[in-house]
Amino acid sequence: MHLHISPAEGKPIYRQIVDQVKYLIAAGRLQAGEELPPIRVLAEELLINPNTVARAYRELEVAGLLSKRQGAGTYVSGGGSPLAHQERLRIITERIDALLVEARQMDIPTEELMELIQTREKLLNEP
């Protein structure tokens, strides 16, 4: 699990952790049942306050993405949870929004954009 924290971004650090963990789960890079590093270890690794990590874990727990086993650490909750799917949708929506805004600024009509997406997809599928 690799997270990247940047205080200069402005986004609160615990939020950055929450978002990135959500992203990792959604992208499948964190599998269900996988153990997350203990708070202290993660704090030292990211050079952030342990309390911040604790808060992020708590938030993720409330959202049902993580579960704590008594005295045994924090684990990713069972897979296929609706939340994970919602999260995936949310992330991709964000990206689409950004794409649309940029396309509008560059004067590229949506139809052309759609065509472009399809062309790219074909290219990606080819070996």
Partner: peptide, 24 residues
């Protein structure tokens, strides 16, 4: 971070590297 992870210890640090302050 190690120091503060021990219960009850307090760290007071001054800095003008606000990036660091925001982290810890």
């Amino acid at each position: 971070i190690r120091t503060v992870a021990d219960e009850g210890r307090t760290v007071l640090f001054s800095s003008h590297l606000l990036d660091e302050v925001e982290r810890v």
